[in-house]
Nucleic acid binder design. Structure first.
Lengths: 244, 244
DNA sequence: CTTATATTTTAGTCTTGCCTAAACTGTAAA
DNA sequence: TTTACAGTTTAGGCAAGACTAAAATATAAG
């Protein structure tokens, strides 16, 4: 009678640093669903990979303890997964800030470059960069930058379409997937840090008319108004980005 | 009668951008051998990789037209390979300059971070960084930075050990694998841009004694003297780096 | 000229991350 | 309630880049 005894005390998945594409998936889940479950399809679309690849990675994320995954129901981040996602988001937004403010990148080119860089830089680099930039609380788009410890304050901003005529509001964030929209607003200095007076919010077609600091009026259609997030000027803004 | 016509006009090896590890190998060959042939073993040691992996990659470099390779004799770069290597060296040295001068990195940490970053940045990033840095001709170690077109002027510098007593010389470059050596010299401001007067070059044990700008004398042993490269102060230095 | 040693190459595998094609599941419409 | 279809998973593969072990070659020493 003979025995074969197999001992494998190492769990490589638990100890190895997450590879670069693991980070992509975790970040994608966070961006798509926050703390809800993200579907295979949505993640596949965002990362431009096949659904099969996503299913496969969801299984691995589960093993690594970064996500919970149930067949046909998508994946949602665990606390560890969320921390990892925010670590990458912090890198990304700090890098974007650097590219825009110090290297003169345009809003179009920034995202792609930052996407590649965020996988290559160390935490040391990230924190030194944060130092150099003066620890900004928001990136140039107005998106909040997660803290080094992986926390991010929840924010409740209204879009321009949700405001009421007569209010004076501060532009805090400008968010849109289209570079065109960003450029249009940028050219007119409707950027984070500027304030405007809401002249009219027309329920009929969603057009919002605002008056900028120089007294010029701008009529913004629904999609433009949806991209601009504001705060009442009475509340202080946490970290105003200097006007361009 | 029917035909099946197969057309494959693409040659993936010739058109695909070199992957990141291809660059590592090309750069390693350049750093080890310049335009001579680098041995499998030396490249393996430098990249911390097995000899078998190197042999394998040498074959691929040959196919890609980046190197010429003959079994048992090592690989040497072609013109294309040399261009590719210099492109990466340019990136590396510009990134190092940035890390040291703008992010406050120490000489120890710089290399590793730059090594990772140089694979992630685009040519666009590289050139914008060069702009920001004022198009330096040398990095903080004094190593010349290849031009954007992939050319690098040959330089013929003498090490301190090759000078003669009585000469006044300008320190142009400080090169050593050991961070200790770099730190020792750095602490004493024996860095690129400074000039010293050679007091004695002792053939017996290789000790070189120099007097710095403040009149302080330093006795440098053989290995220290070999790390310091100088130029006669009569010739102009191409791109002096400001003293620390 | 032969042998010992160092180096190099070959052969076969592994892991990560992606793919396509085919099978499966859940949901919403007829 | 059955059917159609969108979305998901399974199965099988591929390429890059690394590894180990074993075979081959070169070189240096006797």
């Amino acid at each position: 009678m003979s025995f074969i005894l197999l001992l494998d005390m190492s769990d490589p998945l638990a100890t190895l640093p997450p590879s670069s594409s693991v980070g992509d998936y975790v970040k994608a889940i966070w961006e798509i669903a926050g703390s809800e479950a993200a579907s295979t399809k949505d993640v596949a679309a965002r990362l431009s990979v096949s659904s099969a690849s996503v299913t496969n990675m969801f299984g691995r994320l589960q093993e690594m303890g970064l996500a919970e995954y149930e067949r046909y129901r998508g994946a949602s981040l665990t606390a560890a997964g969320r921390r990892e996602a925010l670590r990458l988001v912090r890198r990304h937004r700090l890098i974007e800030t650097f590219l825009l403010e110090h290297l003169g990148y345009s809003w179009q080119d920034v995202h792609e470059e930052a996407e590649r860089l965020e996988h290559a830089v160390s935490d040391e680099f990230t924190e030194r960069l944060a130092d150099m930039l003066g620890h900004p609380g928001r990136d140039p788009h107005g998106d909040p930058i997660p803290a080094a410890d992986g926390t991010l304050a929840v924010e409740s901003l209204k879009s321009l379409g949700e405001t009421e005529a007569g209010q004076r509001v501060l532009i805090v964030k400008v968010k849109d997937d289209s570079a065109q929209v960003l450029n249009y607003l940028g050219e007119r200095s409707l950027v984070p840090g500027r304030s405007v007076k809401v002249r009219e919010v027309r329920a009929l077609d969603g057009v919002v008319t605002v008056e900028d600091e120089g007294g010029v009026e701008h009529a913004l259609g629904e999609s433009l108004a949806r991209a601009v997030f504001v705060q009442s000027t009475l509340e202080g803004v946490q970290d105003p980005v200097a006007p361009a």
